[in-house]
Design a protein around this nucleic acid. Sequence first.
DNA 1: TTTTGTGTTCTAATATATTAGAACAGTAAA
DNA 2: TTTACTGTTCTAATATATTAGAACACAAAA
Lengths: 121, 121
Amino acid sequence: MIRSVDKHSGVPAYLQIMNTIKKEILLGHYQRKDQLPPVRELAQLFGVNMNTVMRSLEKLANEGLIESEHGVGYFIRDVPDVDLKTIQLLQQTISLLKKQGVKLPMVLLLLEELWKEADVS
Amino acid sequence: MIRSVDKHSGVPAYLQIMNTIKKEILLGHYQRKDQLPPVRELAQLFGVNMNTVMRSLEKLANEGLIESEHGVGYFIRDVPDVDLKTIQLLQQTISLLKKQGVKLPMVLLLLEELWKEADVS
DNA sequence: TTTTGTGTTCTAATATATTAGAACAGTAAA
DNA sequence: TTTACTGTTCTAATATATTAGAACACAAAA
């Protein structure tokens, strides 16, 4: 979590922060109901204004990963807890796509299209 | 291909155009060496300036999907030709992820991370 | 109640992305 | 060579995104 923001990466700070936290969650570094460090603390940690962190947290909240309690703090909401088998299946698929010479941007578009169509059941 | 640009979607015109063409390629509507319609024609078709189309085509060229010949036209370069089995594997993976309650943005991040790590072999 | 620590809102400055207009430049057929 | 087609570059206007500062609002402990 102690990662810092790269001001010269071209990627907006709030996105870097957002993805950093998202990865932490993906890696299982947090448990449901865990409290995140205060906005001001994160701001100092990442070397940005408080509102920049707010931006990140709001986005994470919109995605349903965390939620806020005014005056109290931000809390982890759902730890998606992706099944290991699913991860492996995804890895296998990626490997196949790479072999076929498909590039990442194309895969991202393909995934989004299939995601729209896919059944929930 | 006759699709138009939605000015009120929030998505930049050049991206809509880019994705439209990308989908056409994905769906196999083009063959290697096929020539795209002229920039000016596409511009009129989509109701935007010529340079907006240029922007899309440059991006597609950067991704290696098309290439230009100055004074001649734009041509399809690689038709990735994704294997049907791979598509089905991806669909299956998506289905599993949805069942586990993972949201699209999280999947996109996960995919990008795994893509970096994945072996080419 | 007061204080301390938390998130929130409002505003504005700045940076970046997006789009268009117009002139430029290459290619090939007439 | 000239013409009619193609893509390219340069410039500027505009829109949108990003970031920060400061004041506000809620919660809980002193």
